[in-house]
């Protein structure tokens, strides 16, 4: 701001800066020590830990900004506010511009912004998309991701306790619930999301009808479930415990009721659960369409048939419609 000072005036900027530095440091330290560790989404997965850290870093930068402006506004109100609304038509300081103030403001905001963008980009890339849905062809993948996707399509078991492989899980959004398929365990489908601890999970999220969003809150995973799209998100589980899954994209009337609870269990418990469920559900699984990245009702939607997303057109529209308009 303008820095010319009349001789007997107090140095406003120095006062404000002093207050700002002191209060900011105190606020930042208090936040970092007492609040930061409890900020959602917690510590249940690698992405949760990282995303919590990013949030805390942002807040530590944001607090001084907020406090700086507030102190300035408060100071202006107290010191420069006229008490009685006296109409004094000629004002004080006539500074229209101040090159130093303007330049430093622009430089400081630009630097902060570029640092934030750089840090954010680094976090996204280093953490395999930070638990966000990366679409059908993820660019930032953990090692072993490709192998897991191949195993999922082939239906071969690639994960066992201690194997350190990526476990593929399919999340299928539908109005108004999520179901989960475990392609490497025979492709059984359940309404329970059980995951092994200390394992990199590849969520393959898709939808049967409208857009949903798979939000495993404590896992810090969020990926939109689009029909016809396989939206992949990664995270690595770190702690055992329960978590909540909610739909976070408006999907119709019962959107508010579209939630369930999941569990991260020990690797051996998971293995037990998966193999027993696979065996128990074997008869039902046979009736399901074979595992695929996406599922679609057939052309008429009436026969209830599904086909795997493949390399050819599932039905011949030329055959259906001929070269003419269908009778309507």
């Amino acid at each position: 701001m303008a820095t010319e000072n009349a001789q007997n005036e107090p140095n406003h900027l120095r006062r404000m800066t002093t207050a700002w530095v002191i209060i900011s440091v105190i606020a930042d330290v208090l936040f970092w020590v007492f609040v930061g560790p409890h900020v959602p989404p917690g510590h249940m997965t690698e992405t949760a830990i990282n995303n919590q850290r990013t949030f805390n870093v942002l807040l530590v930068i944001a607090l001084p900004v907020l406090i700086g402006v507030w102190i300035y506004l408060g100071y202006a109100i107290v010191v420069w506010g006229s008490k009685r609304n006296s109409v004094d038509s000629i004002g004080g300081e006539s500074a229209r511009t101040n090159r130093k103030a303007q330049t430093s403001w622009i430089v400081v905001t630009s630097v902060v912004v570029l640092i934030l963008a750089g840090y954010g980009s680094y976090a996204v890339i280093a953490e395999h998309g930070s638990g966000g849905g990366e679409g059908p062809n993820p660019v930032w993948t953990p090692s072993g991701a490709a192998q897991a996707q191949t195993a999922a399509l082939a239906g071969t078991q690639n994960w066992s306790p201690g194997s350190k492989n990526v476990l593929p899980v399919q999340v299928i959004g539908q109005q108004w619930k999520f179901t989960y398929r475990y392609p490497t365990f025979g492709g059984f489908e359940t309404t329970q999301l059980i995951l092994p601890v200390n394992t990199e999970i590849a969520f393959n999220v898709t939808s049967l009808d409208v857009i949903h969003s798979f939000w495993a809150y404590q896992l810090s995973v969020k990926a939109d479930a689009n029909p016809q799209v396989n939206d992949v998100a990664y995270t690595e589980t770190k702690q055992m415990g329960n978590f909540v899954v909610r739909c976070s994209e408006l999907c119709g009337i019962w959107h508010g009721s579209m939630y369930n609870y999941g569990k991260v269990v020990s690797q051996s418990d998971f293995m037990n659960w998966a193999t027993t469920t696979e065996a128990a559900n074997a008869a039902n699984t046979k009736l399901l369409p074979p595992f695929a990245w996406t599922y679609v009702p057939d052309a008429n939607g009436a026969s209830g048939g599904y086909y795997p997303d493949g390399k050819q057109t599932p039905y011949s529209t030329v055959e259906l419609y001929g070269s003419k308009t269908p009778a309507s």
């Binding site: 016809q228 679609v296 050819q312 057109t313 599932p314 529209t317 030329v318 070269s323």
Partner: peptide
């Protein structure tokens, strides 16, 4: 080209 249905043949 969703569902290979950008355009039908001919």
């Amino acid at each position: 080209n969703n569902g290979m249905l950008w355009r039908l043949p001919h």
